[in-house]
Simulated scan of single mutants.
Amino acid sequence: MQKSGFYLRSEEPNKSCLLALRDIILGQDEEITETVKYGMPCFCYRQKMFCYLWVDKKSKRPYILFVEGKRLNHPELKSEGRARMKVLQIDPEIDMPIELIVLLLNNALDLYRKGIISVS
């Protein structure tokens, strides 16, 4: 899939951060696909929504929204009042915590890979 207007409309440093996050997410498994849902880049694992990228309205920082975040436990993940999903905020002004991002993405993917969340 081509990069959506979401990335191209974003201003620096968010644009570079979001594009890097996109590459990291897509690089975790060959069965991850990208689409757009609700105007946001959405990443699916075997056609099942698994995470989104978005920018927080207040802080203006990018974040990864994990669809099954309630099943993930890490102090950096915040529910922010959501019942099911959790977010990992990313500060585009500093080096990205790539190891943490990869760990959380794979923890989330394992929910699908191991059948905890069913995929068709």
Rank of each mutant, 00 (worst) to 15 (best):
Q89R: 09
K86M: 03
K86T: 07
K60Y: 06
L72C: 03
K48V: 15
M49L: 10
E80F: 13
L77W: 02
N73P: 04
R84D: 14
I94C: 12
P62D: 12
F66R: 01
P62W: 11
K78D: 02
P75M: 05
K57H: 14
E80C: 11
V67I: 07
Q89A: 04
E68A: 12
P92H: 04
G81H: 08
K60N: 12
I64L: 04
R84V: 10
L53A: 11
L53F: 04
F66G: 02
G69T: 00
E76S: 08
L72Q: 05
R82Q: 13
R82I: 03
R61W: 14
Q89W: 11
A83L: 10
C51R: 00
L88Y: 02
Y63I: 00
R71G: 01
V67T: 07
Y52K: 07
E76T: 11
V55I: 15
F50M: 11
L88Q: 01
D91Y: 06
R82L: 13
F50A: 07
K70R: 08
E93G: 10
N73M: 09
G69L: 04
W54S: 14
P75I: 02
P75S: 05
Q89K: 12
L65W: 02
D56W: 09
P62A: 11
K60W: 04
I90H: 03
L53M: 07
R82T: 10
L77D: 01
E76D: 00
C51P: 09
R84N: 15
I94H: 14
L88A: 00
Y63E: 06
S59G: 10
H74G: 05
V55D: 15
V67Y: 05
N73T: 15
W54P: 03
R71K: 05
S79N: 05
K86R: 03
S79G: 01
V87W: 03
K70P: 12
K60R: 13
H74Q: 06
K70L: 03
G81R: 11
K48A: 14
L65G: 11
L72I: 07
W54F: 10
L77I: 00
Y63D: 06
L53C: 10
R71A: 05
P92Q: 08
Q89F: 14
V87D: 02
D91V: 05
M49K: 04
R82E: 15
Y52P: 04
N73I: 15
G69E: 02
D56P: 14
P62C: 08
P62Y: 09
E68L: 09
V87E: 08
F50Y: 13
G69C: 00
M49D: 15
G69P: 04
M85V: 01
E68W: 12
N73A: 13
K60T: 08
D56F: 07
Y63N: 05
V67N: 00
L53D: 09
R71Q: 06
I90Q: 08
E76M: 13
S59F: 07
K60L: 00
S59H: 07
W54T: 12
P92S: 08
L53W: 01
D56A: 11
P92D: 12
L72P: 05
K58A: 10
G81K: 10
P75D: 01
L88D: 03
K48M: 13
N73E: 14
P75Y: 02
L77M: 02
R71Y: 01
F66I: 03
K78Y: 06
